[in-house]
Design a protein around this nucleic acid. Structure first.
Lengths: 196, 196
DNA sequence: ACCTCAATGTAGCCACCGTCTACAAAGCAG
DNA sequence: CTGCTTTGTAGACGGTGGCTACATTGAGGT
């Protein structure tokens, strides 16, 4: 084995990858910098060269999480051969899927938004959510959604999705019914956002 | 000063009160059992007589939180001299108010639901939410909400509220617009849940 | 080719934390 | 009064995050 040299060469990324894995699998609280360093095979103080403190690492994780979420959402949005409602359900499903599969990561992502000095996280969040605003505009253009400020129309829709995801990951709603719950929330949301 | 005796007499409750305060003010992560014991003026191992470990204390806190939430919701529901929509907005406001004022506590409350051996928390949660189910039934009775399974009708409504609260506490949506956002989400929710 | 120097990793320390166990004090039931 | 249970205390252990001083490395200028 090419016993790596004194300098790792890729420490930051490897730390992030490992950290994301243990966060997703065992929760934020279970993430220990020292344990992480041990797993990667590096001294306990090495991570400090790349992350000022534990919170900085968590912020970076959140940023990366928003990037992943953005990819998922854009992927779900890509095929544009469907009716608007169907596309909406597809994007909603992608969002709820991500939220339930990465529950702990999502909590981290939203935790970061209000912390000071986390502009990078906020920027990543905006980028991830941009597709949703486009979808709302599209719905307005084709007459499926009420006209007016896109935010006013989109916020109730997004709140429903986010709330559903949150209730699913909290165990308030049973995960087995995920599919039908998404359908129900989407349908109710679209009715509520329809032109009147 | 009546220097209290060896036995405190009311340790458990005082620990819970102090703990809730620091959780609400500084977040769950900032809660330290030792610091708590110091504040109450008791040895660092004393809390262990009342809470098996830190998680047990957090569970008790969650349980107490659901009790408080239930009181708020029932209070908002009590005056029944209004039209259904107005009552709904009032209850929704009470929920979002609680969620934003006790953001960290709420996170704790929902964290508990999925943890093993926390039936007491689940029971408290059910009790807190019971008023909401009653309100939905009432809306169905007076024709403001679609008939059918109360859960199918109520879940999208509740998801919207919970999501809105979550987005507000995360800082995704600005707290200053709380009032108008509640109005918007309530209106959209009611339209989506109306008979068709 | 050499030398400097910034970047990166290491080793050891500190205070703090949660948990465990052995012990002390207080209340209570007979 | 006596013994037992409850409640609080004291001290120890391993683990953690953060800090500082030091070691190693690689890259760029001469």
């Amino acid at each position: 084995m090419a016993t790596r040299a004194y300098h790792h060469g890729n420490l930051r990324e490897e730390l992030l990858d490992r950290a994301e894995r243990t966060v997703v699998e065992q929760g934020v609280d279970a993430l220990s910098l020292r344990e992480l360093a041990r797993e990667v095979g590096v001294s306990h103080a090495a991570p400090r060269r790349h992350f000022a403190d534990r919170d900085a690492l968590l912020d970076a994780l959140a940023e990366q999480g928003f990037a992943r979420l953005g990819v998922q959402l854009r992927g779900a949005l890509l095929p544009d051969d469907d009716a608007f409602a169907a596309r909406y359900v597809r994007v909603a499903t992608a969002y709820v899927d991500f939220a339930t599969e990465h529950a702990e990561l999502l909590a981290l992502m939203f935790r970061g938004k209000q912390r000071p000095g986390a502009e990078a996280v906020a920027v990543a969040a905006d980028a991830a959510f941009r597709p949703l605003f486009g979808l709302v505009a599209e719905g307005q253009a084709c007459g499926a959604l009420a006209a007016g400020d896109g935010e006013d129309v989109g916020i109730p829709l997004y709140a429903g999705l986010h709330g559903l995801a949150s209730l699913l990951t909290a165990g308030v709603l049973p995960a087995e019914r995920r599919g039908e719950l998404i359908e129900g929330v989407c349908a109710a949301g679209l009715r509520g956002a329809a032109p009147r």
